[in-house]
Amino acid sequence: MSATLVAPPAAETLAEPIIELRGVSKRFSKTLDFAGRLAKRLGANLREEVVHAVDGVDLTIRKGEVVGLVGESGCGKSTLGRMVAGIMPPSDGTILWRGRDLRSLNAAEARNAKLRTQMIFQDPYASLNPRLKVQEIVGEAPLFHGMAKRSEIGTYVDEQLRRAGLDPSLKARYPHQFSGGQRQRIGIARALAVQPEFLVCDEAVAALDVSIQAQILNLFMKLRRELDLTYLFISHDLGVVEHLSDRVVIMYLGRVVEEAPAEEVFRHPNHPYTKALLAEVPRIEARKRAFAGVKGEIPSPLNPPSGCHFHPRCPFAFDRCRVERPALKQVGPGHRSACHLNDAA
């Protein structure tokens, strides 16, 4: 197993997919209330607003992989993560758990699939119920789902806390008595307590100090070795993703624009957006250069640009980009990119 872990392209051919997304979309619509409909009938300039947070995403994550999902804020990466974790149902498309459609599972199987996928949240201050003690936060779900007996729950919780790097003697305390890093460890212990095989980490270290970030990232990698975990690691920080991931997926405004093994993305980025993102990662060898950044703001997902979503900010955009949506096409082994420039070349 460890050989496939360090060689991601091999993993892609060997390991079975743990989760597959096929054409998954998520729309949030703000429907008009009665007063709004009345105003519209009287001629007001109102319409139902629909946000395509995620727009037709295909993604396969194989057992044992660490997939990094990168994009600017508002690109739909958190929404995608929540659909993968089963908290939000997709508006369109299917999600396959170990090759089976989530909607076709019966109640017990669906619950099992949900428990096998756990999520680590961004804000360690909002992700723990402030009214429960640590032992209740960690122990509630295993007790409820019968993974531990009431008589053994104390030692079971201790084990999860120790695994997450927390002193079990602190378990009778409330979340507000812990620091951000410790709270994040409590969140990790809560997820581990239901014996997951797949963790979705939504900006799991973004709210922490840099030194604590490293500790938590190391903890994730230690758990991966010990428990044979698979990760979807969502982040806006390419630097964090670079060190962890076997494979990187770049999202822009709800769509996947590039997908490749981690080294390949950093060595040979194909999509202009990926290139622009990489140019912003501070590197020692490039410390004298000025940072240009990506031009302009991310457009509003309420009113996305036509064709390729990136064309208003792309230095290489041409006429075709303004009308036609580029498809994800193979540009190398395990490397796909959605850019019309690849056809022109």
């Binding site: 949900k114 756990q118 949240f121 997820a191």
Partner: peptide
């Protein structure tokens, strides 16, 4: 809308609970 509610949903706890 706070994340601990999403965490509880993720832990497959029933809505009533």
């Amino acid at each position: 809308r706070r994340e601990y509610i999403e965490a509880a949903q993720c832990l497959a706890l029933p809505t009533r609970r």
